[in-house]
Simulated scan of single mutants.
Amino acid sequence: MFKGNFFHGLGYLAEGFRLIRQPGLRLFVIIPLCLNILLFALLFYLLAEFFAMLIATAMGWLPDWAWLQSLDWLFWILYGAVILLMLAYGFVIVANLIGSPFYGYLAELTEKLLTGEDLGVDGGWSQLIKDIPHALWREVQKIMYYLPRALGLFILGLIPVVNLVAALLWFLFNCWMMALQYVDYPADNNRVSFPLLRQQLAQRRLSALGFGLPVALAAMVPVLNLFVVPAAVCGATAFWVRESRLPLTQ
């Protein structure tokens, strides 16, 4: 059940950050990065507007005491923390939906750079546009896999005592999902279905969790999460190239 090498997995994200600086990959990093910056700014603006309205409503319910009305800064600190958390997880989901066609092609170019082998997927920009429905469907499959399991963990988290274990399971599940999310791009390029990918990653679960851990942590840091997505795609491709070709002896 726990095969693979956790410490090998930890190094793939750092390798991804090195790969995104390669001249042949930069274009397919810059384009989704620009889209992500626009998306991040829009989400931040909408959430800030929403919480400003929420704070104004909450302050309106309070008695008209000067010392209570002066606590609006405390509300902004509390809601600011909520904004950051919502922004982190919401951003990753939406960014992957928008950038999925670019990330698939980025994974293809990264694999070619690492192996010197051509996957035989030609067509350039026209093919990238044609692949949009397929790329979106792969993202929907991942969301459909994620939601019922996340709901189950959420329910466990409401049970006293059990919720202590649920917190650990929730974190491990997020690491697992990050590995699934990004290794899916090179797997799709190699005609591996999403169910089969889950089986293959399960055979190297420790390596997958090692890769997913720093990705999950970096995705929670505003600004850094703008860059972690393309780096995770490149790192996941390095994971795919090396881990999928190793015998399961570790």
Rank of each mutant, 00 (worst) to 15 (best):
M1H: 11
K3G: 14
K3Y: 13
N5G: 02
F7I: 11
G9D: 09
Y12L: 07
I20A: 04
I20P: 01
L25W: 00
R26Y: 01
C34T: 08
L35S: 11
I37T: 04
F40A: 14
L42G: 12
F50V: 11
A58G: 03
L62R: 05
W67R: 00
L68C: 12
Q69S: 15
Y79D: 09
G80Y: 00
V82N: 09
V82H: 07
I83A: 14
L84S: 08
M86I: 01
M86C: 13
A88Q: 10
Y89G: 15
F91E: 03
A95W: 06
A95V: 02
A95P: 09
I98H: 01
P101Y: 07
A107N: 06
T110F: 11
V121S: 09
G123K: 06
G124R: 08
Q127W: 14
L128T: 08
D131G: 13
I132Y: 04
A135R: 11
L151H: 10
G152Q: 02
I159Q: 05
I159C: 08
A167P: 00
W170D: 06
F173Y: 14
M177P: 07
V183L: 04
Y185G: 06
Y185T: 02
D188A: 12
R198D: 02
A202C: 00
R205D: 00
P214V: 06
V215K: 05
L217D: 04
L217H: 02
A218F: 15
M220A: 10
P222L: 05
F227R: 07
F227N: 01
P230T: 03
T237V: 04
A238R: 07
F239L: 03
V241G: 03
L248A: 05
